[in-house]
Simulated assay, not measured.
Amino acid sequence: MAALKAHEVARFLTRPDVDEGIFLAYGPDAGLVRETAQRLIRKLSGDDPEQASIVTLDGSEVDADPSILAVEAKTISLFGGKRIVRVRGAGKSLVMTLTELRDDMQGASIVLEAGNLPPRDALRALVEAAKNGRALPCYPDSDEALAALIRDTFNQQGIRVDADVVGTLREILGNDREITRRELEKLCLYAAASKELSREDVLLLCADNGMLVIDAILDATGGGHAERLELALNRALSSAVDPQRLLRMCMIHFDNLRRWRTEVDAGKAPRAVLDGQRPKPHFSRIGALEQQLRLWSDNALATASARILQTTADTRRRPGLAEPALRRTLLAICMMAAAR
């Protein structure tokens, strides 16, 4: 009988305290649930995994025919290896069959995958109460766990990374384990020959390039950098980014600056204002945003926002003029920033 804590799962997967029984991987991170089940099955398969008899069922199959789980669990392997039944999308329909099986597994193991289950869920309660039952909670990675996973992955492949690669990846990837693994595999393949990885490589391969170019437009406009603005606009428009979308993003950007500026005017330092935001702006933009907060006054930001709003209304009435109107408006605002 065991209900593991989330931080205990990794240690359990390295050295399980039982080699047969009912195992339940559950939680909101579907990618981590699948990875946990896969790692556990590899461990349960023993020293000769190719001899193991592994059967995979979908929850819908078991819902349609509950007896199939018992049949597969009790079927003797022709080759004498471990018998493992994996059930994806497990639910309450399994409870009755598992109740019959839990005290006499006859050498078999059942590995269940489920979503986020509350403590009183019947399936979770059954597994936690079973003598040979182990419930393995799978919750999204913390920043520390994600950073450790990134470092370990690159170290195992012998890839040297720049100092800011881990921080950049942590910002980009979020907390879904499956997405994280997929992106790390892509980066390892990319760096297989050179054994080196830079932040620029990470941004090129993993970041949302559309969002990156929009950020470049916003910061060039707000920072008064006309040449950067023209280059970023050309990149965005040549990639078929909708001018109306760019105007919306600019409106949001200047509204944010005005809201943050209110805190600065109240006596708070620009960096402290930015550090206190949730979600926090990407660390690569902090310097640019801090500069913009120092450049713009509340009145000037209100004027810029009003101009963007007017251009948005005009381009909705005359969509054919959206691109030149966008360029003219953002350049004018950019010049306002440059003159401050």
Rank of each mutant, 00 (worst) to 15 (best):
D121G: 01
A207Q: 05
L44R: 10
A300N: 08
Q292R: 04
P16G: 01
T315R: 09
A266R: 10
Q156R: 14
R278N: 14
A52N: 09
C188T: 08
A30R: 12
P279F: 01
A236D: 10
A216M: 08
P243N: 14
P279K: 02
V111G: 03
Y139N: 06
F254S: 04
E144H: 13
A145L: 07
I286H: 09
L274V: 02
R11N: 12
A145G: 10
I286N: 06
D141W: 05
L101K: 06
L218T: 06
R124D: 03
R181G: 04
E35W: 02
A10H: 07
L187Q: 12
G27P: 01
I54L: 09
D63H: 08
Q38E: 15
I68M: 14
G31A: 08
W296V: 04
D176Y: 08
F254D: 06
R261F: 03
R170G: 12
L126V: 01
E100V: 00
L293Q: 10
A339S: 14
T303F: 03
A90S: 10
V85C: 01
W296C: 06
A135F: 09
D314M: 10
L274G: 07
G320D: 12
E144F: 09
K92C: 00
R278T: 12
G276H: 07
T14A: 15
G222E: 08
A288P: 01
D29P: 07
V166G: 01
L78E: 04
K92V: 03
R151N: 10
R39H: 04
K280Y: 11
A226Q: 14
S109V: 01
R316D: 09
A300V: 01
V241K: 13
R42P: 00
Y190S: 07
A122Y: 10
M1F: 08
L187C: 08
R316I: 13
Q244E: 13
R181Q: 15
G287T: 06
L44N: 11
M105Y: 05
L123E: 10
C138E: 11
K186M: 02
M249Y: 13
L212Q: 15
S284Y: 13
G224I: 03
I68C: 14
D19W: 11
E100D: 12
V9N: 03
A332I: 00
A193Y: 01
R160E: 12
V95N: 05
L289D: 04
R228V: 00
D201V: 09
C250N: 15
D208V: 00
M335Y: 12
H225C: 05
Y26W: 13
R328W: 14
A163L: 07
R182C: 03
D29A: 02
L146S: 03
K74D: 14
A10G: 04
E227P: 09
S194E: 15
L189G: 10
D58E: 15
D103W: 08
T312R: 13
V213F: 02
F154L: 04
F79M: 09
A64V: 00
A272P: 07
I41S: 03
N299D: 15
A3R: 15
T75I: 00
R271I: 06
G174D: 11
E35Q: 03
